[in-house]
Amino acid sequence: MNEPPGLLGPADVRRLADELDLRPTKKLGQNFVHDANTVRRIVELAEVGPADVVLEVGPGLGSLTLGLLGSGAQVIAVEVDSVLATRLPVTVRERAPSAFDRLTVLRADALCLRSQDLPRPPTALVANLPYNVAVPVVLHLLAELPSMGHGLVMVQTEVADRMAARPGSRVYGVPSVKLAWYGRARKVSAVGRSVFWPVPNVDSALVEFERRPPPADIDRRGVFEVVDAAFSQRRKTLRAALAAWAGSADRAAELLVSAGIDPRSRGEQLGVEDFAAIAAKV
């Protein structure tokens, strides 16, 4: 079955890869989506349209880029691979010429991106993120780009579970708490391995994010220091885990009690508001 003009199918992805002599690397987490229905579903779930400026990290060969442009949104595509960054505008001009003026391609590492690097403030993040840097990229962009109010990212299923976990969950940890500082993350859909080339050896999922006001009027960095300390020894009670951060176990217990938290608790039992309460007592 032929794909409608604009979207890439399996044959298109392989042709582009051959043209560029591209050999996808695990180091860059390169697994390219070649299923148009998956692209349509991502764009639909992302709820972006003409009013949005979408930041896409790792556009690769352009499968998702074309879908996002098809929504009417402006797209800022950030690509670390210079060959792919150079080819993407050509692909868009060939397959979606009327949308070409809504595309900006930046050759950059998303982990080093600053707000001043962008031509306009993005309203949304939509991306198929490399598995090895997914959480650091999302956290960095949320901190750096306050205009980014919502998003949808495709990540490894285990990463998705950690991003969306709630207190008390077995996989609740540092990514869960830090994301909760910025808003609410929710795992919305599984993605089959067969929609990628090359086929990855892990399952994927879509995580939706909606920014909300911080849970407390306090410096984020101080809260994140408490979070990092609490989970650095997650088998220990907070009294013990926070000893180095607080200066001693007794001082940690004093701060915890002052914040209304049982020193015998463990990090996975606390919500982001609790960590903010602890940080506020310093």
Results as ranks from 00 to 15, higher is better:
Ser115Arg: 13
Arg102Gly: 00
Pro122Tyr: 00
Val135Gln: 10
Ala108Gly: 09
Val138Cys: 12
Ser115Lys: 07
Met148Gly: 14
Thr104Val: 09
Pro119Ala: 11
Leu118Gln: 12
Ala110Gln: 08
Pro136Leu: 01
Leu106Thr: 01
Ser147Asn: 07
Leu125Asn: 15
Ser147Tyr: 03
Pro130Val: 04
Arg107Ser: 07
Val137Asp: 13
Ala124Lys: 03
Val135Met: 09
Arg107Leu: 10
Ala143Pro: 10
Gln116Ser: 12
Asp109Ile: 06
Ser115Asp: 06
Asp109Arg: 09
Ala108Gln: 12
Val135Leu: 01
Arg120Asp: 03
Leu141Ala: 13
Thr104Leu: 01
Leu142Gln: 11
Ala108Trp: 03
Leu106Gln: 05
Asp117Val: 00
Leu113Thr: 09
Leu125His: 14
Asp101Glu: 13
Arg107Lys: 12
Pro122Ile: 02
Asn132Gly: 10
Thr123Val: 02
Leu125Trp: 03
Ala110Ile: 11
Gly149Ser: 15
Leu145Ser: 12
Asp101Ala: 03
Ser147Gly: 15
Ala134Ser: 15
Asn128Phe: 05
Val138Lys: 14
Arg120His: 07
Cys112Phe: 01
His140Ser: 15
Leu129Lys: 13
His150Ala: 14
Leu125Met: 13
Val133Ile: 15
Val138Ala: 13
Leu145Gln: 14
Val105Leu: 02
Val126Ala: 10
Tyr131Trp: 04
Arg107Met: 00
Ala108Val: 08
Asp109Gln: 02
Arg102Asn: 01
Thr123Tyr: 02
Gly149Met: 04
Pro130Ile: 08
Val126Arg: 06
Leu111Pro: 15
Thr104Pro: 00
Val105Ser: 06
Val138Trp: 08
Asp117Ser: 10
Tyr131Phe: 08
His140Gly: 13
Arg102Lys: 07
Leu106Arg: 13
Leu125Tyr: 08
Pro122Lys: 11
Leu118Ser: 06
Ser115Trp: 01
Glu144Lys: 13
Leu111Arg: 12
Pro136His: 10
Ala134Glu: 11
Pro130Asn: 08
Gln116Ile: 01
Ala134His: 12
Asp101Tyr: 01
Leu142Tyr: 10
Gln116Trp: 03
Ala134Ile: 11
Asn128Cys: 02
Pro136Cys: 06
His150Asp: 02
His150Leu: 04
Ala108Thr: 05
Asp101Phe: 00
Pro121Leu: 04
Leu139Phe: 14
Ala127Phe: 01
Val135Ile: 09
Ala127Gly: 03
Asp117Gln: 11
Leu106Met: 05
Ala127Thr: 11
Val137Tyr: 09
Leu139Pro: 15
Arg102Cys: 03
Leu103Glu: 01
Asp109Met: 03
Ala124Pro: 07
His140Pro: 14
Leu118Cys: 04
His150Asn: 10
Asp109Tyr: 00
Arg120Leu: 05
Asn128Trp: 08
Thr104Cys: 03
Glu144Cys: 10
Leu106Gly: 07
Leu142Asn: 15
Leu129Asp: 01
Glu144Gly: 10
Asn132Asp: 05
Leu125Ile: 04
Ala143Val: 12
Val126Pro: 00
Ala127Glu: 03
Glu144Tyr: 07
His150Thr: 13
Leu125Lys: 09
Arg102Phe: 00
Pro121Ser: 03
